[in-house]
């Protein structure tokens, strides 16, 4: 048997082995994290972001997988997203949001974050998503001003 074939077979065998271990992990069970209370979500924020104090403006998602709040001094937006049996946390300053959209009860945040580019929060009530979208506009980075070269190009077009 040539070396390439050996490597390909080893690769297939390894991928199969990984699949079996993951299936075993699923079969044995694990506990999915749910954010049942605001206090629980805030504990993740305190754990991950030193000095973060959540203010009164906060919301848990209907599926208990997400949490959003404004910091007490309104300087940052706190986000907690349940991921598997743990949570991923972000504290966003002004300019760290690319866009905010409200559609029905769903609030969609687009972030300048390579590993967490989009956060979708189902807040349960229509008005709540729009109200958050309005509040978060101050955290959206203002569109870049066109450069002189771009202005010149547009004028000459």
């Amino acid at each position: 048997m040539n070396d390439s074939l050996t490597y390909v077979l080893a690769l297939i065998g390894a991928a199969f082995g990984i699949g079996l271990i993951v299936l075993l992990n699923i079969a044995m069970g694990w506990t999915r994290l749910r954010l049942n209370t605001e206090q629980q979500a805030q504990s993740f924020l305190r754990r991950d972001v030193m000095g973060f104090q959540a203010g009164d403006e906060q919301a848990l998602t209907a599926d208990r997988c997400g949490y959003i709040c404004l910091e007490a001094d309104q300087a940052r937006v706190g986000l907690v997203m349940a991921r598997g049996d743990n949570a991923v946390v972000r504290a966003l300053r002004a300019g760290e949001l690319r866009s905010v959209e409200a559609q029905g009860a769903t609030l969609t945040l687009t972030l300048y974050d390579y590993t967490l580019p989009r956060v979708v929060l189902d807040l349960g009530r229509d008005g709540q998503a729009q109200s958050w979208a309005d509040r978060l506009q101050t955290f959206v980075r203002a569109p870049r001003r066109a450069s002189r070269k771009e202005v010149h190009h547009a004028e000459s077009a």
Binding site: A14, A15, N25, W30
Partner: peptide, 29 residues
């Protein structure tokens, strides 16, 4: 890895989560 997974399930002393485990093993491969 399998032994620790079983031990963790029986005792609660270690935690595994399928997608995290998959990612770790794929990174190893």
């Amino acid at each position: 890895v399998i032994a620790e997974m079983i031990y963790g399930r029986l005792t609660g002393k270690t935690r595994f989560e399928p997608r995290d485990t998959a990612a770790s093993l794929v990174m190893g491969l």
